[in-house]
Amino acid sequence: MGVSNNITAVLNFIALLASMPIMGAGVWLASKPDNECIHNFRWHVLILGLLVLLVSLAGFVGAYWNKQGLLAFYLGCMAILIALLLFILLFAFIVTRPDGTYHVPGRGFKESMLDGFSPWLRNHVTTSRSWNKITTCLAVSDTVSE
């Protein structure tokens, strides 16, 4: 086994081990039905952990036993995951770039208004389905006190 395969196998084994706490967090979030905010993220975290597990397992097995098909699958999946992460990063940066904050005289913090954010984010937040989830989440949390 070559040096590059050894490095690939070790890195994928570390990623394999790191995927287990991610999946554990997803299972833990799924078992906590009392918090509506956490309820919205439970399946996303679990699926992310499962995808990392499968891709790192394919990379580890392919590198350790020099299976060219698994290494090709691993490289393709890793390229797709990297492209998706870059897309999400750019999308989040573009959507949240106008942050909607403004200075208030006499206060040490900035106030926010929804009008200062991007039109896509405003429309997404103010739809009845999204807004109902947000208000339910805020109502059960200690974020907004009356």
Rank of each mutant, 00 (worst) to 15 (best):
T96W: 06
G69Q: 13
E111P: 03
R107I: 13
R97Q: 07
L85W: 15
V52P: 00
R107Q: 13
F91C: 06
L54P: 06
L84F: 06
K67M: 06
L54S: 13
F60S: 01
I94Q: 05
L86H: 02
T101E: 09
V95F: 01
D99S: 07
F87P: 02
L71Y: 01
A92I: 03
T101F: 04
M78L: 15
V55G: 07
K110T: 15
R107P: 01
L75V: 09
L89I: 10
N66G: 04
M78C: 09
A83P: 01
M78K: 12
L86G: 09
L86W: 05
G106Y: 03
F73K: 00
L75M: 12
G100F: 00
S112N: 14
H103D: 15
F93C: 07
N66C: 05
I94R: 04
L114D: 05
F93G: 09
Q68C: 00
K67I: 14
G106M: 10
L114E: 11
W65G: 05
A92S: 11
H103L: 09
I80R: 00
Y64L: 13
S112D: 13
F109G: 07
P105D: 11
A83N: 04
I80Y: 07
P105E: 10
A92C: 05
L70T: 10
H103V: 12
K110I: 13
I80N: 01
G62F: 04
P98Y: 03
L89N: 04
G108V: 12
Q68M: 03
K67N: 13
V95D: 08
P105M: 05
V61H: 02
K110F: 15
G62Y: 02
T96R: 07
P105T: 09
F109K: 12
P105K: 12
G76I: 14
N66H: 13
W65T: 11
L90E: 04
L114W: 07
A72S: 14
Y102W: 14
N66F: 02
G100V: 00
L53V: 01
H103F: 07
G59D: 04
M113Q: 15
G108W: 11
Y64F: 14
L54N: 09
L54T: 10
L70F: 09
F60T: 01
V61P: 00
F93T: 08
L50Q: 07
L114V: 15
K110M: 15
K67R: 10
I82P: 00
Y102N: 11
L51M: 12
G69L: 11
A72V: 13
T101D: 05
I80H: 01
L71G: 05
E111T: 05
T96K: 08
P98M: 04
G106H: 08
E111I: 03
L86Q: 04
S56T: 00
D99F: 05
L90I: 06
L81E: 08
L75P: 00
T101R: 08
Y102K: 13
Y74K: 01
F60G: 02
G69D: 08
